[in-house]
């Protein structure tokens, strides 16, 4: 009896590091796509019915449009996005040496606009920023997520993980309470997913438009009645980074469709 208990304790201790590292084992990770109904899946799968593709088309136009004081287009430096941007979004948020911290894909686009195009930054959740982000991220479709591998990002991944497991708001819930412990169950009729950010920016039918991962995180925070962090705040970027590292190995789906 005592021996059996000792074995159980050893087994728990052996399992603990993997549980702490990600909560969900790599082979058990599932995109939100796996939780959707057949109609919504069909909508995402067919590029001529996926409304996110409208934004990708707009992004493609913006990619080649000259703008700012430098009168340069994205394409003037980066060339054909199909080769130059392939796999890029799967690595974001990435470490920015000048800032000394991670930046999201949207922030990178605005840094590029400021530094190389001498153009004003695009506001968060503006149509143009979402369209450019979607166009860039679309080039990584089906590429496996590797964000967070850079050793310089380690403290920020840790910060994101700490935020993920920290209870907050009037409902006193942490992200992990739903997305690690209770996925596959339902919340008011809607499936609880693992919260894997595989397809951002994505088209939410509820929003009737494309939106960023930050928008999604903010609405989750509002849902637990917490004060949401501002767009672009270091906390949101750290959370986004942790979520991407937690989804390591899952293929990118941008632009995904979600209910």
């Amino acid at each position: 009896m005592r021996r059996a208990r000792a074995i159980a304790v050893v087994a728990l201790l052996a399992a603990a590091p993997t549980l702490l590292a990600g909560g969900i084992a790599p082979e058990a990770r599932r995109s939100g796509y796996a939780f959707m109904g057949p109609e919504t899946r069909a909508m995402q799968d067919d590029d001529s019915s996926n409304p996110g593709m409208l934004f990708v088309l707009d992004g493609e136009t913006l990619w080649t449009r000259k703008t700012g004081g430098a009168d340069k287009a994205c394409a003037d430096c980066h060339g054909d996005a199909r080769s130059s941007m392939k796999g890029v979004a799967a690595r974001y948020p990435a470490f920015d040496k000048a800032a000394g911290r991670p930046v999201t894909l949207g922030q990178r686009i605005n840094l590029c606009r400021g530094n190389h195009q001498q153009a004003a930054p695009l506001p968060y959740e503006s149509r143009d920023l979402l369209a450019l982000s979607a166009f860039v991220a679309h080039q990584s479709r089906s590429v496996a997520i590797t964000a967070g591998d850079d050793p310089q990002l380690k403290p920020f991944v840790e910060q994101g993980r700490a935020l993920f497991v920290q209870r907050e708001g009037q409902l006193n819930l942490a992200c992990t309470n739903c997305h690690d412990d209770n996925f596959d169950k339902r919340l008011a009729g809607a499936p609880i997913t693992q919260g894997q950010p595989t397809g951002y920016p994505l088209y939410r039918l509820e929003w009737q438009t494309l939106g960023s991962l930050e928008r999604r995180l903010r609405s989750c925070m509002t849902g637990v009645r917490a004060q949401a962090y501002d767009y672009g705040s270091p906390e949101l970027v750290a959370l986004e980074l942790y979520l991407m590292s937690r989804a390591r190995g899952l293929p990118m789906e941008t632009p995904a469709v979600r209910p």
Binding site: S48, S49, M53, L54, F55, L57
Partner: peptide, 8 residues
Amino acid sequence: MAALINVP
């Protein structure tokens, strides 16, 4: 404005 058309 972008539009997506699917005609065989």
